[in-house]
């Protein structure tokens, strides 16, 4: 037995090597079952957890991008609506200003026509007044002239004409 255990070939203790190999194998086998597989399992589990997190993150990113796209579309729609309403309001304002301008033009034309009418009336009144004054002066002159110039014959003729008109007789 000792001779077997102590046998060497070429100076190498093959029994010890074999024993070491057997111990190594046993150790490795034990580590495999006690350490390697649990560690592997733990690593797999952790890997799955990480992957799950990555997948979830990717999903959330996609959802966020989808929401962003949706909000961008809504913002664009709001911007368009605002632009449309601004355009409509501007058109209404322009129409209102045009209406006010036309109303003002109409009022100005009416005032101008009224002023011209008033001027014409004033001119007519002045002409009438002047005509009256001229008539007054002419009549005054006529009175003064008649007072001096009417003859007995003319006066008699005048009386005769009146009596004829009133139903009298004349020779």
């Amino acid at each position: 037995m000792t001779s077997i255990l102590a046998s060497t070939i070429l100076g190498i203790d093959w029994v010890k090597i074999l024993m070491h190999l057997i111990v190594f194998v046993v150790l490795m086998t034990g580590l495999t079952f006690l350490l390697y597989k649990p560690v592997l399992k733990f690593i797999k589990k952790r890997q799955d957890t990480i992957q799950e997190g990555l997948d979830k993150g990717k999903q959330m990113q996609e959802e966020a991008e989808s929401l962003k796209a949706e909000y961008d579309a809504k913002l664009a729609a709001c911007d368009q609506e605002i632009a449309d309403k601004q355009k409509t309001a501007q058109a209404e304002l322009d129409a209102y200003l045009e209406e006010q301008k036309q109303s003002a033009d109409h009022d100005i034309a009416a005032l101008k026509a009224k002023a011209q009418e008033d001027i014409a009336q004033e001119r007519q009144n002045a002409v009438e007044e002047m005509r009256g004054e001229v008539v007054d002066v002419a009549i005054k002159l006529t009175e003064e002239l008649l007072e001096k110039e009417i003859s007995e014959e003319d006066n008699s003729k005048l009386i005769q004409d009146c009596l004829s008109a009133w139903g009298g007789e004349h020779d």
Binding site: S156, G168, H170
Partner: peptide, 21 residues
């Protein structure tokens, strides 16, 4: 009423008118 005293011829005509009327 007259502006100046009537001539006799005019007075006759006036009186004739008044008498008729």
């Amino acid at each position: 009423t007259v502006a100046r005293p009537l001539l006799d011829t005019d007075r006759v005509k006036v009186e004739a008118f008044l008498a008729k009327k």
